[in-house]
Amino acid sequence: MKRIPLICYFILILAPFAQPERTVAGDQPSDFTRLHFQVPWPPINNKIQPSRAMHADLSTFVDEAWILPVHSSHLSPGHITSRALKMPGLRPFFLVGEDPQSLAWLHQRATELQEIGAAGLAVEVTDTQALARIRAAAPGITILPVNGNDIASRLKIEHYPILITATSLEQ
């Protein structure tokens, strides 16, 4: 039988004390999570009036030609039945396409959409000229090309144009 050196006994005895303390993820943020996953809060600007609708024209910052064409297979132009929603805190937004019904709807409701601070999602757009026509129907309102399939399935809608607010779906 071989003899085990004395140092091996000490290693076996002290090994459990050398392991780091086990913690459950989320109990205490480590330096890594604190540095990389902390969400910074925006600075508070007391000069902004909260009752006033704020508009950001994001289209001026990006060339959207790379995302076009946009086709939302779960949505088509058509009539919708208005219904109530309970989504407190949801900012108003609308879905439109490049079809004549959407352009007429946008032209009719542009003032109202701007007053409530609604942002637009163009869910059916073939090219930059079509996107320009959509934006021209409601000047001053942010309208971005986006695939609307996820929104359609979550809100159980099939048609556009549609205005979605915290309290209702309407056309």
Results as ranks from 00 to 15, higher is better:
residue 162 I to N: 00
residue 112 E to R: 13
residue 63 D to W: 09
residue 100 P to K: 02
residue 136 A to Y: 05
residue 115 E to D: 13
residue 134 I to M: 00
residue 140 G to T: 07
residue 20 P to E: 15
residue 31 D to V: 15
residue 129 Q to V: 12
residue 82 S to P: 15
residue 56 A to H: 12
residue 137 A to I: 11
residue 53 A to D: 04
residue 140 G to N: 04
residue 169 L to D: 09
residue 20 P to M: 12
residue 34 R to A: 09
residue 159 H to K: 12
residue 97 G to H: 01
residue 20 P to L: 10
residue 31 D to C: 06
residue 84 A to V: 13
residue 142 T to P: 14
residue 110 A to I: 04
residue 25 A to V: 13
residue 160 Y to W: 07
residue 79 H to G: 08
residue 95 L to H: 05
residue 2 K to E: 12
residue 81 T to Y: 04
residue 160 Y to T: 05
residue 11 I to G: 09
residue 151 I to H: 01
residue 124 E to P: 02
residue 122 A to G: 06
residue 103 L to S: 10
residue 163 L to W: 09
residue 145 P to F: 05
residue 96 V to Y: 00
residue 43 P to G: 07
residue 146 V to Q: 02
residue 142 T to Y: 08
residue 97 G to F: 02
residue 7 I to K: 11
residue 78 G to C: 08
residue 163 L to N: 09
residue 60 T to A: 02
residue 133 R to S: 14
residue 152 A to S: 05
residue 47 K to W: 07
residue 26 G to P: 12
residue 132 A to F: 09
residue 51 S to K: 15
residue 16 P to Y: 05
residue 83 R to L: 08
residue 61 F to E: 06
residue 167 T to S: 12
residue 139 P to H: 00
residue 158 E to Q: 13
residue 81 T to C: 00
residue 79 H to T: 11
residue 153 S to T: 12
residue 112 E to T: 09
